[in-house]
């Protein structure tokens, strides 16, 4: 899914999705609920006190296991 598709689905500017991905903006609960609904995931997966690992890091860790 592209940023533009997700932005249209939740009603924000595509740049806002980029800011969220980069960790430069923390979404409101309302926006987080909308994003969670798009992916059919619980809203808790969108919030964490620790920075999320990058996709490359996750793949690397899986390869080492």
């Amino acid at each position: 899914m592209s940023r533009k598709d997700l932005a249209e689905a939740v009603g924000v500017n595509p740049q806002t999705i980029g800011y969220l991905e980069r960790g430069d903006y923390a979404p409101s609960v309302e926006l987080a609920l909308k994003i969670a609904a798009v992916f059919g995931a619980p809203v808790e997966v969108l919030f964490s006190l620790k920075p999320f690992s990058s996709l490359a890091q996750i793949i690397r860790n899986k390869g080492e296991d």
Binding site: V12, N13, T16, Y25, E30
Partner: peptide, 8 residues
Amino acid sequence: KLDERELA
């Protein structure tokens, strides 16, 4: 016409 990040 602005989203929450733009308003902030």
